[in-house]
């Protein structure tokens, strides 16, 4: 029997990735408009989920702030969209979110467990209600118009951010900083005494993950053309990335990617097929996934794989 070596496996994986990339780059040329829009949503959720995992995966700090960082990006796009060219707007959206993350991080990263969770979620609601009040009482508006660009442009921009996020996450995981983050999650005190600058690592990674969320928000705003605080700071966007990451499994980088892709597709499918029951079914699937997939889809598949592989070995 031919046993695939790790080198061989690597080449297969690279090949698959390359083909996937080509399909994704070329799909706006032949795919229907609907597919392009769906893929954009999928990319957005992969970006949110992977960037959530970059920080919360190894460190174990469960952040419910994605909606805040995303929303800041959305608003950056709305406020600056008519002033700067789009790439600059996206960059600024990301940077604004990073700045917010640095402040929040410096304030809160000594909070552990449920307190950190509550603080980050409070942040989303605070921004939402503050901007709502601001728009009604100070500027006298509700919502804003965002300069639009074509679906294809949005698609490619999101794809670009997606590729950068995945590359960043991959490189970070393999680097000494990825190791340091993991050590922080396992025992913060020991990590500090091994020379890891715990605070700096946590804040910078939190800011890095916020950057991508903000960039994703800045891009998505251009697709929505009209935004208001309830769209920009939708609390659901804080929970979904966490669920998607858990659904996929946070142990491997492709876990959150697969989780986000499947979940987003599922949501879209349910909304179109069962518009009246979709939340019910979706909620049920969430509960089911938490109950029966403790290590995520990837963890379960690996287990199954091992069992099958183990059985084969026993046969031979």
């Amino acid at each position: 029997m031919h046993i695939p070596t790790s080198n061989y496996k690597k080449r297969v994986a690279l090949g698959v990735l390359f083909i996937l990339l080509i399909v994704m780059v070329t799909s706006p040329l032949y795919a229907p408009r609907y597919t392009v829009i769906l893929l954009t949503s999928i990319f957005m959720f992969i970006v949110l989920t992977v960037s959530w995992t970059v920080f919360s995966g190894p460190t174990g700090y469960v952040s419910l702030a994605p909606a805040a960082f995303f929303g800041v990006g959305v608003y950056a796009s709305a406020l600056l969209g008519f002033v700067f060219p789009l790439p600059v707007v996206i960059l600024l959206g990301g940077i604004s979110s990073s700045c917010l993350a640095v402040i929040v991080g410096a304030l809160t990263l000594r909070l552990r467990g449920i307190y950190f969770v509550m603080f980050t979620f409070g942040l989303v609601e605070l921004l939402l209600h503050f901007i709502l009040w601001w728009e009604v009482n100070i500027t006298g508006t509700t919502g804003r118009v965002v300069p639009t660009v074509g679906n294809t442009t949005v698609y490619y921009l999101m794809l670009g951010v997606l590729v950068i996020v995945i590359l960043t996450a991959y490189l970070l995981n393999r680097s000494r900083y990825g190791l340091a983050l993991q050590s922080i999650g396992e025992c913060e005190e020991a990590a500090a005494h091994t020379g890891v600058h715990v605070t700096a690592m946590k804040i910078s990674t939190f800011a890095l993950s916020a950057f991508f969320m903000g960039a994703a928000g800045a891009i998505m705003a251009t697709r929505w053309t009209y935004i208001d605080p309830r769209i920009a700071f939708n609390p659901v966007l804080s929970f979904l990335p966490v669920l998607m990451a858990i659904f996929g499994g946070t142990g491997q980088l492709y876990g959150p990617v697969i989780g986000a892709a499947l979940f987003t597709y599922l949501e879209e499918f349910l909304i179109t097929r069962f518009p009246y029951y979709y939340m019910l079914i979706f909620g049920f699937i969430m509960v089911f996934a938490i109950l029966y997939l403790p290590e995520g889809l990837v963890g379960m598949i690996q287990k199954l794989w091992k069992r099958i592989g183990g059985a084969k070995h026993a046969d031979s």
């Binding site: 000494r176 190791l179 340091a180 993991q182 396992e186 005190e189 020991a190 990590a191 005494h193 091994t194």
Partner: peptide
């Protein structure tokens, strides 16, 4: 200045090798 702990504080889910290499990456 390096130290050990009275109640052991290893990184339980990381392989032994990675526990140690962290020190060489971030030490003096």
């Amino acid at each position: 200045v390096a130290r050990t702990f009275q109640t052991v504080k290893v990184f339980p889910n990381m392989p032994v090798f990675q526990n140690v290499i962290l020190g060489s990456y971030f030490g003096t």
